[in-house]
């Protein structure tokens, strides 16, 4: 009997949680982003470590910069929701030669949540890159949806 008030309080809190207006809050990133991280490859693949490039510049060709001369170990970019491919300029340091990455993908419109509404999800088909600074790349996850995954790893040897 002495626990009755506590039980009622817990029940009421649960009820208020169940009564939450789901259209008011968006707990996921509405714009699904493609994530890339940078890895330093030494000893020909036997020793791979995350690396930070000092002056990273990234932008889609013909668009504003996403990152401009900032130290980064990973970058996130939005793919073009109106086309089946996107091209990005990536320069990792002022002394390095920039690379161009081309992503080819399929698009699908998905309902994310009552608070977030709809978003375009992508499935990556192909990634084409120049190899001026980049040594190799690996696709970790082809599905670009509203989760903050790292979809691609770029490997460098220096």
């Amino acid at each position: 009997m002495k626990y009755i008030s506590g039980i009622i309080a817990i029940l009421l809190l649960s009820v208020f949680a169940a009564c939450e207006d789901e259209t008011k809050s968006c707990d996921q990133t509405l714009i699904s982003s493609l994530g890339m991280n940078f890895k330093k490859d030494t000893l020909q693949g036997f020793l791979v470590k995350d690396t930070i490039w000092p002056k990273v510049t990234l932008f889609a060709l013909g668009k504003d910069s996403i990152v401009r001369k900032q130290p980064r170990s990973s970058v996130f970019m939005s793919l073009d929701p109106l086309a089946d491919s996107s091209r990005f300029y990536l320069k990792l340091d002022s002394t390095m030669i920039p690379d161009t990455l081309t992503f080819r993908y399929k698009r699908k419109k998905n309902f994310v949540s009552p608070g977030c509404g709809f978003a375009t999800f992508f499935t990556i088909d192909t990634v084409i890159t120049t190899f001026h600074t980049i040594d190799s790349l690996h696709i970790n996850n082809r599905e670009v949806n509203s989760t903050n995954d790292t979809h691609i790893s770029l490997f460098f040897i220096y």
Binding site: I31, A60, K63, D64, I66, S78, D80, P81, L82, K109, F111, G117, F118, A119, T120
Partner: peptide, 17 residues
Amino acid sequence: VPAFNIHNKYWQSVTPG
């Protein structure tokens, strides 16, 4: 859903559906 719009700030696009 009779109408929805997907707004993308970076690409400055609106995708209706």
